[in-house]
């Protein structure tokens, strides 16, 4: 890779080459999850700060487990218990964490651009674990790894994303990532949830409010969680959403026979997805979770295992024998 990766703030700013490098680095860590002894000393003595200003369970556990399996320690900041509740500014909280000398900060925040803002003020690497409706880079990386494993490639696929695209950082990161590899997209959901922004980015994006039409010929179907808190702006009855947009076995038949079904979780069975699809052979949901660990281990390894200043004249290919 040409340049050292300093932060991971968005997929948009990465090149296809950098994405490919990160996916390749994740490969050995996928295997590692099957080892009897899941503990490396590679990041021994390093500390990863997990700053989750917005509630999160799976992403936080995934990052914490990734850090722990690499031998790093973690410090935890959780929204409910944080001094944000007491009125401290984001920057003050970040600087306080930084003063405890972690080697990187993994951060989630409900405001788009929050990770970028913190990265501009701190020296240490910042990993964006989701910022508002902007991006969720590690989710897109683990989705790409899952697709590449099952399909052998991520290039030029037909990808259908179903749900609330407008408010979804998962959709945005996936559009940026798979878009860099020439994938074509169909965004599907109630019209008020289908933004026009991606058409302006010159990506191959089609919008459709009819799921039967959107699934036709799909290689990959990404089902988004229905954020029930959003259903009321403007009002859309839940049972109407289920009727119009739930991914059912019958509808999935309209996609290619080997189409993959991805869901970023948490998945609500019987709402956005029929249980028969969620548990079916085309579903990748549990692989996504395992691959999430591999991607996050690779990322932490790439970002903090090596030193920033000194370079070995012989290069990384030469071990010391």
């Amino acid at each position: 890779m040409a340049e050292r990766l300093r932060d991971l703030l968005s997929i948009e700013e990465l090149t296809a080459e950098e994405i490919g490098f990160l996916l390749d680095e994740a490969k050995p860590f996928q295997e590692f999850q099957r080892y009897p002894l899941k503990k490396l000393a590679t990041l021994r003595g390093k500390t990863v700060a997990l700053a989750f200003f917005e509630a999160s369970t799976r992403t936080r556990i995934s990052f914490a487990t990734a850090a722990s399996r690499l031998g790093a320690d973690t410090m935890n900041l959780q929204a409910e218990a944080s001094s944000l509740k007491k009125g401290e500014s984001l920057l003050d909280t970040a600087r306080t964490l930084d003063a405890m000398k972690p080697d990187c900060i993994v951060m989630r925040h409900s405001s788009s651009g929050a990770a970028d803002f913190v990265a501009r003020h701190l020296e240490i690497p910042v990993i964006n674990a989701g910022d508002g409706t902007h991006e969720h880079p590690t989710q897109a990386l683990l989705d790409a790894l899952t697709i590449r494993d099952r399909r052998g490639k991520i290039e030029s696929l037909n990808v259908t994303i179903v749900g609330d695209i407008l408010h979804s950082r998962v959709a945005r990161s996936n559009l940026h990532l798979l878009g860099k590899f020439g994938c074509r997209f169909t965004l599907c959901g109630p019209p008020m949830w289908l933004p026009r922004e991606f058409e302006c980015l010159g990506k191959q994006v089609r919008r459709s409010s009819r799921i039967d039409d959107a699934l036709e010929g799909a290689d990959v179907v990404i089902v988004l969680r229905v954020q029930q808190e959003r259903l009321h702006e403007p009002a859309l009855p839940l049972d109407e959403y289920i009727l119009l947009y739930q991914l059912t076995p019958g509808r999935l038949k309209l996609a290619r026979p080997d189409a993959l079904v991805l869901h970023p979780g948490p998945m609500i069975r019987g709402l956005e997805i029929d249980p028969a699809v969620a548990d079916g052979p085309q579903s990748c949901v549990l692989e996504q979770v395992t691959n999430g660990l591999a991607v996050r281990m690779a990322l932490l390894f790439v970002m903090i295992a090596t030193g920033a200043e000194i370079d070995d004249a012989r290069g990384p290919a030469h071990a010391a024998h």
Partner: peptide, 11 residues
């Protein structure tokens, strides 16, 4: 010696 190298090692 990972801390002594600056470039990303290829795994």
């Amino acid at each position: 010696d990972l801390s002594k190298i600056a470039s990303h090692p290829v795994l």
